[in-house]
Design a protein around this nucleic acid. Structure first.
Length: 810
RNA sequence: GCGGAUAUGGCGAAAUUGGCAGACGCGACGGACUUAGGAUCCGUUGGGCAACCGUGCAGGUUCAAGUCCUGUUAUCCGCACCA
């Protein structure tokens, strides 16, 4: 077969027949298969793209053949830093390089032979798309879910922009690995924390990998504790958050984060210089320095004291950077006897350590951080763990000094970026009216082309006078636009909604189309997005639902992560490792089908692994074998008279139906490697049958036909061609996927493993209908069994129907 | 430090969820067809001469363990002063 010609032929036919498009008129149940769209970074598809899109497309085709009206769109996450950095290096404008890359990738994606519905294609950098990204922002703003505040933010000195918490990895920029520093800036935030509880509880309803759900749970980080109000001697109220209020009688000092609003107010004149120096120093630390938990704790005394509300004790107030300003209340009560950090700090600064919890039935060694029995806490003595916390929290509540409180580690999502290649934030800053959203009728706020994007810490757009100056929409006075652009994760948080109604120019999507096609039934993409894209998208969907634009709670019903294909050396493919394997030569030599099939067969889909091409020739050979079978039965005459149907035919029919059942099950669960293995077994069975002198031509032909149908989702071009060879009508993808005949799967006899004292003695065929007692009898009389059991009593017999019989003698 | 995942032939990997370990494929070996090579086809292929032994390692539960439990090692991933 001329692979290239066949690929071209069928790709053209599919396009002509609009076979890949979602059928908006069909009554068939919809099925939305989505692969994470790609960033057009390099011009060419790499193995990762093929690995994500090829097998998933086979899944989509499989669902289609099962009778679903499948929607599988594709697009480009086109805004973002790489294009801009490339521009800085080479002078090629991000828009130009991005468009060029997209054009190349589109062609390559089409050559893959995937059934993408290109009529719904979107590119996030196009005005027709980012107009609605800006619209999203405005709706969030109206709803009070977007706000501006000055806050210490993560600043990447190399990318010259702020980063969201999620984009900081080990204190370094996720993108360029530069150490992140903290900077106080006024920035836009989205109030994702408002949805913390629902983002957490919603996970239970999702068919996602447990690991990913756990990562999100962890990231959201819910904890139940208690807020307690301490009062300084001068009457300042200091609220602390603790999960261990059962230790409150053991508090020996209080610690505030250096950025705490009361830090300076509580400082006495004598301590002024020391405190100022400490605060100054803390602010200069990089994230890395500060995050290191092995680093010795430092702090400074403010000179003030506070009163413990439960026992009236006077305790000193310290500042220390081991307390985080952004979590809880930014202040903690220190119980050195029962917290390792407090213990280390107290030891260093000579602060008292007071034991108020005792280990149950054992020596209490400090710091003792587990649950134990309360001591030295008046009426609470003797209570244990949770019980003690409940009682003490109730007591604090009664005193009017706080009470139970739930906290989350999740922070609001920082979305301002001081970069050019993104969607401008649709806001105008008026000297009189303040922050004014751009009226929806004026959207999009266009991203100008002629911009100096060399970074200098300010947004490139800030230097574009024509862009910056705009009249205030409220009062008409001269005002300034917001010079920042939106984090690209905002663009990708709703693209799956836009696909459902990609050409709507009146709204981002119609509610009708979204409700009809959403949620995504199966979403496939890399695991690295667990706490970013996948969390942001869930948040936005919930926010849109609450604003009345949608009628569902979760965007992605089922989630699958493909594994990572590593370089042949076992490392991640990268230029620096010099281990990048390009798919192009393989596709050129063996064809798209063989390459896709190899990716499916050679790896466990969710595992991935090091690349090696040992088996790819075998896959090409396998396709040849299938073709030979088709060629052979194509012209085979089926006689009118009755066909033979004996043991061989029954075996073939069994193989055929067994393959149908297993392939169907395996494709459904993304076990592509075993699905293909089952198809290979079927081919082996057909070849074996075909070698017989007398054959049932009708059965043989029907089996080969099923083989082509079974394989079609995995080798689409080849099977479309083979289908045509068999005289089938275009297209094979409009045929029903085979369904097994349960009757053919019932065998007269089954092979049992026969064991004596759990050791295999022999194998034997017993009737499938045999009951356990019968199996036991049949097994007992086998000569091999007789030999082993001679003269011994059978004490017990275990029968696993259809599989195994075990006689225990002694 | 905490949490999670993984560990199976020379290699990629399977194993109806506690029931014949190694399906399917690669590679290797032998053979057929060939002047030869290639292609194709047919066998054999965990180890051991055997009894037996074999799923990272050490224990345990069970008639039966790759699968469950306890401990341990290695690799990968996530979180990391979250009070």
């Amino acid at each position: 077969m001329d692979i290239k010609a066949i690929e071209r032929k069928w790709q053209q036919q599919w396009e002509k027949a609009r076979l890949n498009n979602f059928d908006r008129k069909s009554d068939a149940p919809k099925y939305y298969v989505l692969e994470m769209f790609s960033y057009p970074s390099g011009a060419k598809l790499h193995i990762g793209h093929w690995y994500n899109y090829g097998p998933t497309d086979s899944y989509a085709r499989f669902k289609r053949m099962q009778g679903y009206n499948v929607f599988q769109p594709m697009g480009f996450d086109a805004f973002g830093l790489p294009a801009e950095n490339y521009a800085i290096k080479t002078g090629v404008h991000p828009k130009d390089s991005t468009e060029k890359n997209i054009a190349t990738m589109e062609n390559q994606l089409k050559a893959m032979g995937a059934m993408f519905d290109w009529s719904a294609e979107i590119k996030t950098c196009e005005e027709s798309y980012y107009k609605w990204t800006q619209w999203m922002f405005l709706q969030l703003y109206k709803k009070g879910l977007a706000y501006r505040k000055e806050a210490p933010v993560n600043w990447c000195p190399s990318c010259q922009t702020v980063l969201a918490n999620e984009q900081v990895v080990d204190g370094r920029c996720e993108r360029c690995s530069t150490e992140v520093v903290r900077k106080n800036l006024t920035q836009w935030f989205l109030k994702i924390t408002e949805y913390a509880e629902e983002l957490l509880s919603g996970l239970d309803t999702l068919d996602w990998p447990e690991k990913t759900k756990n990562m999100q749970r962890n990231w959201i980080g819910r904890s139940t504790g208690c807020e307690i109000e301490f009062e300084s001697e001068r009457g300042d109220k200091i609220r602390v958050y603790t999960t261990r209020c059962d230790t409150v009688f053991g508090v020996t000092y209080i610690v505030l984060a250096p950025e705490h609003p009361l830090a300076r107010k509580l400082t006495t004149p004598e301590q002024h210089d020391a405190v100022e120096a400490y605060i100054e120093n803390a602010s200069k630390c990089t994230e890395i320095e500060r995050l290191s938990s092995t680093r010795e704790k430092t702090g400074v005394f403010t000179g003030s004291y506070a009163i413990n509300p439960v026992n009236g004790r006077k305790i000193p107030v310290y500042l220390a950077d081991y307390v985080l300003a952004t979590y809880g209340t930014g202040a903690v009560m220190a119980v050195p006897a029962h917290d390792e950090r407090d213990f280390a700090f107290a030891t260093k600064y000579g602060l008292p350590i007071e034991k108020v919890i005792e280990k149950q039935g054992g020596e209490t060694e400090l710091p003792f951080t587990e649950d134990g029995i309360v001591r030295g806490s008046v009426e609470f003595d003797g209570l244990f763990g949770e019980e003690a916390r409940d009682a003490i929290a109730a007591h604090i509540s009664k005193l009017g000094k706080g009470g139970k409180k739930v906290n989350y580690r999740l922070r609001d999502w920082l979305v301002s970026r001081q970069r050019y290649w993104g969607a401008p934030i649709p806001v105008i800053h008026c000297p009189v009216c303040g922050v004014v959203p751009v009226p929806e009728k004026d959207l999009p706020v266009r991203l100008p082309y002629d911009v100096e994007f060399r970074p200098d810490g300010k947004s490139p757009l800030a230097k574009h006078e024509k862009f910056m100056s705009a009249p205030c929409p409220v009062c008409g006075r001269a005002a300034r636009r917001d010079p920042d652009t939106l984090d690209t994760f905002v663009c990708s948080s709703w693209y799956f909604l836009r696909y459902t109604d990609a050409h709507n120019d009146r709204e981002p999507f119609s509610r009708e189309e979204a409700d009809r096609l959403m949620p995504v039934d199966t979403y496939v993409g890399g695991a690295e997005h667990a706490c970013m894209h996948l969390l942001y998208a869930r948040f936005l969907v919930k926010a849109l639902r609450d604003m009345g634009y949608l009628d569902f709670d979760e965007p992605f019903k089922r989630l699958v992560h493909q594994g990572v294909i590593l370089g042949p050396d076992g490392n991640r493919m990268s230029k620096s490792h010099g281990n990048i394997v390009s798919p192009d030569e393989y596709v050129q030599e063996y064809g798209a089908d063989a390459f896709r099939l190899y990716l499916m067969f050679g790896f466990s889909y969710t595992e991935g692994g090091p690349w090696n091409d040992d088996g790819i020739k075998a896959i090409a050979k396998f396709l040849d074998r299938v073709e030979k079978l088709v060629a052979k039965v194509r012209d085979m005459k089926v006689p009118r008279d009755a066909q033979p149907y004996g043991a061989e035919e029954k075996a073939l029919d069994y193989a055929r139906n067994f393959a149908i059942a297993r392939v169907t099950r395996d494709l459904e669960s993304f076990s592509f490697n075993t699905a293909i293995a089952r198809i290979m077994e079927l081919v082996n069975a057909i070849v074996k049958y075909d070698a017989l002198p007398v054959k049932n031509a009708a059965l043989l032909k029907a089996t080969v036909t099923d083989l082509v149908l079974l394989l079609a989702p995995c080798a689409p071009h080849t099977c479309e061609e083979l289908w045509e060879m068999l005289g089938g009508k275009f297209s094979v993808f409009e045929k029903k996927y085979p369904v097994e005949d349960p009757a053919a799967l019932v065998l007269d006899e089954k092979e049992y493993a026969v064991q004596v004292n759990s050791k295999i003695v022999c194998r034997a065929m017993f009737p499938s209908s045999a009951q356990n007692a019968e199996v036991e009898e049949l097994a007992r009389v086998l000569p091999e069994v007789q030999e082993k059991t001679a003269g011994k009593a059978v004490k017990k017999c275990i029968v696993v129907p259809g599989r195994l019989v075990n006689l225990i003698v002694g």
